[in-house]
Structures are given as C-alpha cells and as structure tokens.
Nucleic acid binder design. Structure first.
Lengths: 199, 199
DNA sequence: ATATATGATGCAGTTTTATATATCAAAGTT
DNA sequence: AACTTTGATATATAAAACTGCATCATATAT
C-alpha cells in the first residue's frame, strides 16, 4: 500500500550527498537524530510528514503533491534546476529581449533603412530554436552591433555586421553539438522546453 | 518544526473535492479510514509517509521533492502540461519520447542497420528547435513509420520513409510561420495548485 | 600505530499514529 | 415527516515512529 516511499528515501540521500553533508551534519540542520536519518535513508521506517518536511527544508527541497500528468516534468526539472546551464539560458533570454527592444526603436526612428526587414526576419527566426541552442557571446555581440545601427554614419556598416553575426548564430544553432547530447535523448523533450516559459 | 504540513493537508482536501469524492469514497479508494482522513484534512495528525502516499495515489497525485529554486518553474510547467492551450505541445513531447524509446529499441535489436545513425542524428537535431515549431501530425507519422522499422522485411523501406518525413519536419520547423512569439515571451508564471484551487 | 569521521544498529522509554467501531450534528433527499 | 449522506469526534488497542544514548565496523587522516 505504499507507492513512492523508496523513491523519497533515495531522493533524500542523494540530495544530502549532493550537498556534501554527513548524516550528523544534516541532523544538526534538520533537528532529526542521525540514527533516524540512517533508518530513513535505508527505508526501514515509515516516517512522519513532519520529519520529512524538516529534512526537506534542511536540504533546500520542498515537498509537493504533483498531478500525475506533470510528473515527468517535475522529475526533469529536479535534475535541471540547479544545472549550471541555466544561467546562460536566462542571460540569452535577456539578450533576446534587449535585441527586440532595440530593433523596435530602430524601426521607429529609421523605418526605411535598407536591409532592416531582413535583419528583423532573421532575428524572429531565432525563435524557432531552443534558447539553449543559441550562443550567448554571439548574442551579446549582436546586440552590441545592433545598438550601433542607431548611431549616425554607422547605419549600413552596423547593419551588415549584424547580418553577418546573425548567420554565425544560426549556423551555430544548426550545427554546434547539442548540449549533453547523450543525456538529451533520454530526457523528456519538454524539460528543455521550459526555457520558453521562463518569462 | 513543521514547514509545509498545513499546505499538504489543504492540498489533499482540495484534490478530493475537485474529484467530487466524499471522505468515505476516498477511504475506499485509498484504504485509509474515513475518520483518519478527517483528521488528516483537519491537520490534527502528523501522518506517516505511507498514508500520504496512499491518499496521493488515490487522488492521482504523486509526492515529489522539488528543489526550492525550481518551485516556480515546476508550477509553470505543470500548468502547461495540463493546460488546454498547450495540448499540441504536450502531444508533441509525448511523440518525441515515444520516438526516442522506439529508436533505442531498434538500435539494440539491429545496431548495424545502414542509415540508422543518420536517422538518429536527424531526430537528435530536432532538439535544436522549440517544441512548438514541430508539426504534430508529421511527428505522429514519423513515429508510426519508425515503429515499422522493427518489422521483418520492412527495415529499409521504413527507414528511408522515416528520413523523408524527417526532412519534412525539419523544413516546416525552419520555414513555417512562427507562432505568436510576443505572446510566448509575455506569458505569466502559473501556480501549480491553480487547477485544484479553482474548485 | 592512534585518532577521527561516518553510517549502521541495538536498547529502552515515550509519544503518536492508525485502526475499528460507534455516534453525533447538520445538511440534503425523498 | 423519515431517511440518507457527510464530516467530525470519542474510545480502546496495537503497532511503530521517535528519541537519546551507546557502540560497532569501516574508512581516512596523522
């Protein structure tokens, strides 16, 4: 009559080890005796919710009741959440936003600039790719150059340079190695799609 | 010394009511006495993990330990996974998963099939794109054909057909009109509990 | 070699959950 | 009106978690 208890015990132990805590150290943090932690991790006790909550809290976890439909999502995110890749994703999204805003400004101030529509389409097309496929440094470069378009005397040079960087970005997105490509295949696809919704 | 216990009790009650179950009905389903369910919902007992798991299971929920950092994202994605506005995305993701699993099986049973690596790479490359850019019907077709690869006498025909569909999928992802990207970027974060709290 | 850290396990005492059973008050149905 | 449903609450009992404390085996450091 128990379904997920083994998994919870394993999860607690894994989290403790990830944090590099001994059972005694966790005991101090959580206020649960070390002997009990050992039993909990071993799955030999059917622990109370309060004990679980205390341990979870000490391990920077939160107890959640998740609809079955969303379980695979949750599991993926538990793996991904602390990944070092996430900072890049957030930064890339910020660059995307800044680029969009800058483009909007330029379109208002110089709507007839030749090649501007072409650049706009290229930027829009980046939305076809996952954010994690986009190169942060190139995105930064792109934004920098686009900002130069607005400066008198530099319009065409900057615009052409922008188009060149766009090609680089697109090529990298299409041909660079997939991140964690071996792991990617075994992961539900929408674990990566989370990036869309990080507004 | 308790952190999330009240929330868990409330969540359980909300889920029960959403499903339109009485405590006695839930008692039958979960194998936990009605009297105990009443106490649990009232928060007057510090229930054991096994009881919680049984109740969760009966309510189509699963207990999860989620990193604190990921809580907001979990909520967001749980909504997306269930939201009627994103059925295609969920369905596409499921297709991706099934395709990956099927490919894994094929690679194990016929690792030397000519062209298989090429197909595998094509499928992997789909991960460069946002899920929303992928065509559900084509994905279904692809999965169907890939399943035929495993059938004797149909290997090469099915594999070549698969590669053809892959090209279609990729072309559509690259050239189809973009979904409303402005809406995507401005989408707010959702609450994990919102579905049940609507009741 | 000794000292220290770690997780596992035993013991005894205390507390609390879980259970079956029953009953009640209130609300709803016929 | 009588009957049914629902959630709350009481009782007695058994089982098990929880706790403090101690100790052990093993690994590591000095």
């Amino acid at each position: 009559m128990s379904y997920d208890i083994t998994g919870i015990a394993e999860r607690l132990q894994a989290a403790r080890k990830t944090k590099g805590l001994s059972q005694r150290e966790l005991s101090e943090l959580a206020g649960v005796p070390q002997a009990q932690i050992s039993r909990i991790e071993a799955g030999t006790v059917d622990l109370r919710l309060s004990s679980l909550a205390a341990l979870a809290h000490a391990l920077d976890l939160e107890l959640a009741l998740v609809p079955r439909k969303a379980v695979a999502v949750v599991r993926s995110l538990s793996r991904d959440a602390i990944s070092s890749n996430r900072k890049d994703v957030v930064a890339i999204q910020k660059e995307m936003q800044r680029i969009s805003e800058t483009m909007r400004g330029i379109q208002m101030s110089m709507p007839d600039l030749e090649g501007l529509q072409r650049l706009q389409k290229s930027i829009s097309d980046l939305h076809r790719f996952r954010v994690s496929m986009l190169d942060l440094e190139e995105m930064k470069k792109l934004r920098h150059i686009i900002e130069q378009i607005g400066r008198p005397g530099k319009e065409m040079v900057s615009l052409n340079e922008s188009l060149k960087i766009m090609r680089t970005i697109r090529n990298k997105a299409s041909h660079d190695p997939l991140p964690d490509s071996g792991d990617t295949l075994s992961r539900p696809a929408y674990s990566l799609d989370e990036e869309d919704d990080d507004a």
